[in-house]
């Protein structure tokens, strides 16, 4: 039986197509690597930072909506009819298809968070001419938080708390939209104004979509006190994760109004 033996023959024409294919693959892989390692992180970092700034603006709009309702309630007094305002908040950042997953944020309302307590004594004159010391104690609670666990940019939170919008990061926190806390020195007397905002209702939503925060001011109680015992002290106490921001805000406002200086910013990190 005859065995057919094929001799391999050399053909240099095949090298060109093989090398060309390998080069094309290398170019493709290089291009993919460039996209994955350079373009996508930069794109996502910019998108997350942009979302954080946008969310801050949306919380500013939420604060504005609540402030306007408070103003309307004060003007209308007993004729006030509560209305519901809807404020949009974008929760997270969309990803880059195939290359990066979305960054989901979480928006929640906690009616027990961030208690503020204001306590002081004022005095009233009795018909006999004696001074009667009356204690006052008011408390507010509640905060709305957007938690943004950024992966490419700095993770942060945007918080609405007692009329203030706070931006929080691990390396710092600051009040970006100021609450109503006015201190004036007029005719060498001190005039102080402070608003408490209690938030009721809890809820949570997570994702990257744009959701709505409904707010309805259903009561306001403005009071003015103008007679104080000689040793009176107004105490304002607050407990939350954003105490450093409040510390700087209180001190900055009082120092600017009274021109009495102030401390350097605190350095503690959480």
């Amino acid at each position: 039986m005859r065995v057919l033996v094929r001799n391999l023959r050399s053909d240099e024409q095949g090298v060109a197509s093989t090398v060309g294919t390998m080069m094309a693959l290398l170019v493709f892989l290089t291009f993919m690597s460039l996209i994955v390692n350079q373009y996508v992180p930069v794109w996502m970092e910019d998108a997350e930072a942009s979302h954080g700034n946008g969310a801050l603006g949306q919380f500013g709009a939420l604060k504005g909506a609540i402030d306007l309702q408070i103003l309307a309630a004060q003007i209308a007094k007993s004729d006030y009819v509560p209305v519901t305002a809807a404020s949009a908040v974008t929760l997270g950042t969309e990803g880059v298809p195939i290359f990066a997953t979305p960054t989901a944020g979480s928006l929640f309302s906690d009616p027990d968070a961030g208690p503020f307590t204001v306590a002081f004594d004022y005095s009233i004159l009795t018909p006999s001419g004696a001074e009667l010391r009356i204690p006052v104690r008011e408390q507010s609670n509640g905060s709305i938080t957007l938690d943004i666990p950024n992966r490419f940019s700095v993770p942060q939170r945007v918080v609405y708390e007692n009329g203030a919008v706070i931006r929080y990061q691990n390396d710092g926190q600051v009040i970006r939209a100021q609450p109503t806390f006015l201190v004036m020195r007029t005719n060498n007397t001190l005039r102080v104004g402070f608003d408490l905002v209690s938030l009721y209702g809890s809820g949570r939503v997570t994702g990257t979509s744009t959701e709505v925060v409904n707010s309805r001011v259903f009561a306001t109680d403005p009071q003015t006190y103008d007679r104080f015992p000689s040793n009176a002290v107004i105490w304002i106490n607050h407990t939350s994760a954003y105490g450093r921001a409040w510390y700087m805000f209180f001190n900055g406002t009082l120092a600017a109004a009274l021109n009495l200086g102030g401390p350097s910013p605190p350095r503690r990190s959480t």
């Binding site: 609540i66 003015t224 009176a232 105490w235 510390y247």
Partner: peptide
């Protein structure tokens, strides 16, 4: 956070305090 504002009749007396408490329902 604690803030104390003292009434000092001889230096800077406390003239007035306007305190407003608003109640807001959130959804």
């Amino acid at each position: 956070t604690r803030l104390e504002i003292h009434n000092n009749p001889g230096v800077i007396p406390l003239g007035s305090l306007r305190l407003n408490h608003a109640q807001v329902q959130i959804g």
